[in-house]
Write a protein that binds this DNA or RNA. Structure first.
Lengths: 188, 188
DNA sequence: CCAATATTTGACTGATTAGTCAATCGCCAA
DNA sequence: TTGGCGATTGACTAATCAGTCAAATATTGG
């Protein structure tokens, strides 16, 4: 990855997170990255392409963080708890990146290519959920509905923790509570 | 409420729902409502004010729908289930309005006045939740966290139902499942 | 029927923005 | 040193849009 391209991505993430991507002109991004407007369009054919690249970059960061120390061979509950902990940790400690990622996902700006690329990186998630269903750990429900419920609770927990500045011991306790709520809800 | 004002609100809702409110020019709204650009600004001092009025209008619709047949004197679980059913019903059958409401709530475009006005209309919600805590029906947790969890699951359920076109019997079954997941999660 | 008042109109303004492109720069090979 | 070439520049274009305002039109009261 080129040096200037990386700078442009970094600048985009900072500005998008601070002011929203619709309100951030390409000229401002270029200036913030220390290059000219034209240079931005050498590396990214359009603002849309830049936005997609930003999303891929953020999701990559996220994945690295969540997968650190992932107990691939452990039982379903342990794996799910690992993902849960690490996800909330990332959401709370990099909330601007977390929030921007969600915004982009919601905003209908992601290309099919980006979505496909992302799904490929999420196979580890898919695996743990399938294992849970295979082992009849979870209640009977559609896997897509299951995913939505899990992600929704995760998101609610992160945003609550950030909104009320829950930290340290209190955060650990909150995460415990959230896992309890989730597990009681979805497990047989 | 004035006739033209109502037309403008209606046109705004239709266009915002179809194309997003950032992508809808005021001129287009006015044309769609059958008035001139200038007229829009007679009734709403700015596009922001119009957006806020749209939100208030949608929330009003929502409240009417959710409160229809509300068993004010029933026990906590019955009241919560009523709200749950009616909310999903509204979300599924008026998804464009539902989705627009959520978009507006997320997008940081609502004035303090609008938010205050909305909270006043939500006392019935506040009451049932407080009753639940007073009667020690729910697990011990912060009321704000509780609210977020409930709304998150509700939203996940609506979006899943719409995405997979769940209807009639299947929808009723989904709602049952969702209540089960919620209740097992939050109740003692 | 007229005058006064209120409402409506839409061309216009000023500001903003994604994307272009001819000119310039800087690097390297001959 | 020089010629060539890809990378970089930023002034510029064409388009878009929120909001204005003077003129036109409708409404109301006497």
């Amino acid at each position: 990855m080129n040096d200037k391209k990386q700078q442009l991505l970094k600048a985009s993430i900072e500005l998008f997170a601070a002011e929203g991507f619709w309100n951030t002109p390409t000229a401002k991004i270029a200036r913030h990255a220390g290059v000219a407007t034209g240079t931005l369009f050498n590396y990214f054919p359009s603002k849309d392409a830049l936005i997609n690249a930003v999303y891929v970059e953020l999701k990559h960061e996220w994945r690295e963080h969540v997968l650190a120390g992932y107990p691939e061979e452990a039982d379903v509950k342990s794996r799910l708890e690992h993902i849960w902990f690490r996800n909330i940790d990332w959401g709370v400690n990099h909330f601007d990146h977390y929030s921007l990622t969600e915004q982009l996902r919601m905003a209908d700006v992601l290309s099919d290519e980006t979505i496909r690329h992302q799904n490929e990186e999420l196979t580890f998630l898919y695996k743990v959920v399938c294992d849970g269903f295979d082992q009849a750990i979870f209640k009977e429900m559609d896997i897509d509905y299951f995913n939505r419920i899990v992600l929704a609770e995760l998101d609610a927990t992160v945003r609550y923790a950030v909104a009320f500045e829950i930290k340290d011991m209190a955060l650990t306790k909150l995460i415990m509570t959230s896992i309890d709520i989730l597990w009681n809800g979805i497990a047989r």
